[in-house]
């Protein structure tokens, strides 16, 4: 409350006096009933301009061709961009497709997302449970697990690159233990493993905090009742903790999948999608064909991102529908 009081004094002193007459005038002209629209206007305008409008532009882009940015310069091509993406000799072999990189990126994403989400939620849940126990130094450990969330993806990627490089700390450690050093980021499978590891390392703290809040919102007396009922720890976990944590887990799951599908920054810096195309994910593909590879193919990028958006939307809706009616509240 003290902080709020200081903040309140600061607000009273701020030069909002410039806005106040304007807003008071607006209130006099429009009346109280229309004031919510005045308050909504800036945010709503930004949302319309930078979120909803782009969706429609994307639809337009995906139906037009050429490397020109301005819509008026772009000829209508119908579904050609989608057809290009789906043009394959055999759907089982990406190299027969005209856009084989798209299919490789899609394939990578389809493996990356389930593996990463499972690892992320499993580790975050275990960590949250550990941190929820009555232990010493809880705040300290919570901080340790959370702090990579604050680091920028670029810093995260460079840090791990420095460790994983041929003469890096990890290989140094292996040598000290008498093992053979490995060039981690040069082999597809190990590069893929470290892609998952590094992204989990960077983001698990965020989900841990949410899950920890969920765990802490489970009333203590429920556990006490279970103790009176002589339930063993595993039963307490499966029959009380998990069911009561379900709403939180659902939120975490949806957020985690959406973020996982959108992974870009860390891998762009860590592996650059390589070696070859072993770790390229769908968002990096969109970036590459839309911006990096000349000539820029905005139409194809828009088509690919619309497909991605559609998949995410369907996924979220299914999840929310499944969750409905199963809530305990």
């Amino acid at each position: 409350m003290r902080a709020a009081a200081i903040f309140s004094r600061a607000l009273a002193a701020l030069p909002a006096r410039a806005i106040e007459p304007v807003m008071r005038g607006a209130q006099n002209i429009l009346g109280i009933k229309r004031m919510p629209w005045v308050f909504l206007f800036p945010n709503l305008a930004a949302v319309l301009f930078f979120s909803l409008l782009p969706v429609f532009i994307n639809i337009f882009y995906s139906a037009t061709g050429s490397d020109r940015l301005y819509p008026a310069d772009r000829p209508y091509v119908g579904a050609a961009n989608y057809e290009t993406l789906f043009e394959c000799g055999s759907y089982l072999d990406p190299s027969t497709c005209s856009r084989d990189l798209f299919w490789r990126a899609l394939g990578n994403t389809l493996i990356f997302v389930p593996v990463q989400v499972a690892a992320m939620i499993g580790i975050a849940l275990f960590t949250a449970i550990c941190l929820n126990r009555d232990i010493r130094g809880r705040g300290f450990f919570r901080g340790i697990f959370f702090f990579p969330v604050m680091l920028s993806p670029v810093v995260v990627a460079l840090t791990w690159q420095w460790i994983l490089q041929r003469n890096g700390a990890l290989n140094g450690l292996l040598t000290a233990l008498g093992l053979t050093p490995v060039n981690w980021l040069v082999f597809p499978n190990s590069a893929f493993f470290w892609s998952v590891f590094v992204t989990v390392w960077a983001h698990m703290g965020f989900f841990t905090i949410i899950l920890l809040a969920g765990l802490q919102s489970i009333p203590r007396d429920v556990y006490e009742a279970a103790k009176m009922d002589a339930a063993n720890p595993w039963r307490v976990f499966t029959r009380i903790t998990l069911p009561m944590l379900k709403p939180t887990l659902l939120v975490v799951f949806i957020l985690c999948v959406i973020r996982s599908v959108q992974t870009f920054d860390e891998l762009y810096v860590l592996t650059g999608g390589g070696p070859g195309s072993a770790t390229i994910l769908i968002v990096q593909y969109i970036y590459e064909i839309g911006f990096a590879i000349q000539p820029r193919n905005f139409g194809l990028a828009a088509a690919a991102s619309l497909l991605l958006g559609a998949v995410l939307l369907v996924f979220t809706l299914i999840q929310l529908r499944l969750a409905r009616g199963k809530s305990y509240d």
Binding site: L40, N43, L44, V47, L48, F49, F50, S51, L52, L53, P54, V55, I57, N58, Y61, L69, Y70, P71, I258, V261, Q262, F264, V283, I286, Y287, G290, F291, F298, A301, A302, S305, L306, L308, G309, L312, L313, T316
Partner: peptide, 23 residues
């Protein structure tokens, strides 16, 4: 209005990268 704002949660920023660049 609330739905219009929250709906943008569903739109990943990377999906609208090209149009945002245009705007």
């Amino acid at each position: 209005a609330l739905i219009a704002i929250l709906m943008t949660l569903m739109i990943p920023p990377t999906v609208v990268l090209v149009p945002i660049y245009l705007i």
